[in-house]
Design a binder for these strands. Structure first.
Lengths: 210, 210
DNA sequence: TGGATCGGTTCACTATTGGAAACAGAGTTT
DNA sequence: AAACTCTGTTTCCAATAGTGAACCGATCCA
């Protein structure tokens, strides 16, 4: 099928996709990220495990990093690829919304086991849901079933001590300042093991589509 | 500074950071895409401009493609990077991951103005990035420019008292237990106004896309 | 059966990346 | 101002990615 390649070319062109590899100023982007964090090449080197010289060359577009190198970058810098590839990101929409919640001013939702205090509940369209919880429960038995909801949850103990029961792990004891991140569709439940009711701060991802 | 590089190497090794880049079965993924379109290596070669042999090696994880090679792939195949990186078949439900961080056990990232402690940094693919910050800055002048990053940020004062400067609002004084939610592409900066350095807990959304 | 053809892998070789060390420039310190 | 220190750049070389050609089954067909 000799005509096939023509067809392919036609397809490629018709696809609307640029036939050329766009520059994709990866070097500039990296430098931008590095500087915006006030990191030196040496800092980045330590974080990523790539040599200082290599980083310099990447930033100056003198070499095209190996994919493993790119991985080391995104791992070491704690960014993800889209972030690295997104061109200088034109300030799309800086909406600048904000929502302040003073201590104790959240929206209270009491239940037998927990007393939730929703924070920043003025803001409607947000990607995270923060709330403070006073853990009333003292025993796992007080829960009729696992708590579970789509998405992920981050939790830090603000006061007291808790035991975190989860569906797939042994219970975990958490003291003030300890924190944990977990998939919240895994069943979970909290009880206070301290004298007073424990207080934890949680942030859940919102189960947006896709 | 001959000893310096030894030190660097030692640090790099001792850094505890996983020395291995996660597999990220890029080869499998590529093969999957290729087969699902019923393309032969030769077809892909023509589309991408990469040699047949190279493609074979990439698919079999025998080499780590150069970033330019990856670009040729995504251009030639008309896919975008997330698509290529999405782990094959995807863990439809990443049920039950978790990542515990004990008090003070996070990954420290000091800067002149802030000292960050990344929490739950073992977990790679998460939608939120939680971190504790010791606010060293005492004056807005210490910032050369606004801090800003895509997404949204939730912040609660754990200790001390801070002033939050934002691009579009008057500065806001926040005391222990106060919290705020805001669009983090709006410039922002924190300074301690208490005797001691203030400590805040932040959770940022991660660059979405998907 | 013998010989084409097609898909994929392996080989030998060249081009390029990535690392250590040397270098260079700007401050600092003594 | 010499000696340090801290940056980023450049150099040189070992390691490895990318290429064309050879190779290895399959499958097809006369």
């Amino acid at each position: 099928m000799p005509a096939n390649t023509d067809q392919q070319a036609a397809l490629r062109i018709a696809s609307g996709r640029k036939p050329f590899v766009e520059p994709l100023r990866l070097g500039e982007r990296l430098k931008e990220i590095r500087l915006s964090n006030q990191w030196t090449l040496e800092d980045v080197s330590q974080r990523t495990g790539l040599a200082r010289s290599t980083l310099s060359k990447i930033e100056n577009n003198q070499i095209s990093p190996t994919f493993t190198a790119v991985q080391k970058l995104i791992n070491g810098l704690g960014i993800d690829l889209p972030q690295l590839l997104t061109p200088p990101k034109v300030q799309t929409r800086t909406m600048g919304r904000r929502d302040l919640t003073r201590l104790g001013e959240g929206e209270r939702h009491p239940t037998p086991t927990y007393e939730h205090e929703l924070l920043s509940c003025e803001l409607a369209q947000k990607r995270m849901i923060p709330f403070k919880t006073i853990v009333r429960a003292r025993s796992f038995d007080e829960f009729s079933e696992w708590v579970r909801h789509d998405g992920e949850e981050f939790l830090m103990v603000l006061e007291g001590e808790i035991r975190l029961y989860t569906e797939f792990y042994e219970p975990l004891q958490l003291s003030r300042g300890d924190s944990i991140y977990f998939d919240s569709d895994m069943g979970h439940a909290l009880v206070s093991v301290s004298e007073e009711d424990a207080v934890v701060l949680s942030v859940c991802t919102r189960g947006d589509a896709v």
